[in-house]
Design a protein around this nucleic acid. Structure first.
Lengths: 212, 212
DNA sequence: CACAAATGCAAGTTTATACTTGCAATATGG
DNA sequence: CCATATTGCAAGTATAAACTTGCATTTGTG
């Protein structure tokens, strides 16, 4: 009755296999963003990638495994984005510029990763995907808290962490409307996001903000 | 090949039937909020209500129908909340008090309606539920825009409407974290929500805000 | 260039879950 | 207190989608 899955003996992938994996993940991204995680079927993902369902299962255990791979990839890309512009480059910018420098790359990333928002927000996913999600949020919030602490040294570590959390909540909150809209409206939502963050930070980073 | 569903000849409900409907909706609320809309099964809702699946189908066409009934109920309650405190009672309050007066009843309502956030945010639901959702959002945003226009007469109608939309986006954005947290943390998120709204409104309602 | 490993898939099986049927029990209006 | 409608459910059916099997084809490596 042991239900623990045995670890596979690490199959050796050929170049063709790696390409299949990429194309399947690309297809999964497309389908997830089109119909959402729960409505997405492995059959439709396989069809989107123009392979048979059985082929999909050569490379992924199940649907959840694909979501997991995507979230892990997003996590890597986001770390990359923020690693390339470290705390020290942002800390001395005027606040509006800092907000823009934080948010703009995230919005570009969002355009390139159509399933990001679906997988980030759609609850409840499997335990493993949730773990990936939380790890991602933690990394981002840690980065933000370091930035805020550097900028407003009077803040305690926990205060800075909290402001980072709230920052992320606001960002997440705007995602559905930003992705759902287009043209002028999308632009307006993006500006509103930055305005809201800016006004929040102005207040939260100031010396006479109420401590939490 | 006519797929339009024929309208039922309006079955006459007995008192017992009405109670079953209530208890089934209560059960649906519990299950939706516990596992989310898509993971919720009609069987588990029936089990939660301690009736057989077949009994459930005496009162609802399908799962979607239940979601629809719940959202319609939420819509009614929310209208009630804001109808009881009209624009004229809020318009002269200091801004922080106005935000509190807007948000506090919504947060109380949220506690009483555990599936509200699930049904409001979880995409994509059926077309009918989506319509209910949008009607609800429109009502709320209209109410807000009237309030903002009364408070800041220099705003155009479309500007006031936009501020209402952004207000709602912020509110929705905080819901998952508010419902997911508890104790001190929940309180902190609620305070953060109000702070964020307050700072946004301070800026957006002022005369020298950038027009959209 | 052989041959083991990796890839691909047609054609399944399995399973979960939405939804139905038929019949019994219960309530209600006249 | 009967006729009829409503309620209740055990025991199904239908179906969609996850996932597997067996076998053929391709690829890379020693």
């Amino acid at each position: 009755m042991n239900k623990v899955k045995l670890l596979k003996p690490e199959r050796r992938r050929q170049a063709r296999g790696q390409q299949r994996i990429e194309s399947l993940l690309k297809a999964a991204e497309t389908v997830f963003s089109r119909v959402g995680y729960h409505e997405a079927t492995t059959n439709s993902i396989a069809a989107e990638a123009s392979v048979s369902p059985a082929t999909l299962y050569q490379f992924f255990q199940n649907k959840e495994d694909m979501a997991n791979a995507l979230v892990a990839g997003y996590s890597r890309k986001l770390v990359e984005i923020h690693a390339s512009r470290g705390v020290e480059q942002l800390v001395d910018l005027p606040l509006p510029a800092m907000v823009a420098a934080l948010i703009d790359p995230m919005l570009v990333f969002l355009e390139e990763s159509p399933a990001f928002q679906t997988l980030l927000l759609q609850a409840p996913l499997s335990a493993e995907v949730r773990n990936e999600k939380h790890a991602l949020a933690d990394k981002f919030e840690l980065f933000l808290s370091q930035l805020f602490k550097a900028r407003a040294p009077h803040l305690s570590t926990s205060q800075a962490k909290w402001i980072g959390q709230v920052f992320f909540v606001i960002y997440k909150g705007f995602l559905p409307d930003i992705t759902a809209s287009s043209g002028t409206n999308k632009k307006k939502f993006r500006e509103a996001l930055k305005l809201v963050l800016l006004e929040y930070l102005k207040s939260a980073l100031s010396k006479n903000a109420q401590p939490h």
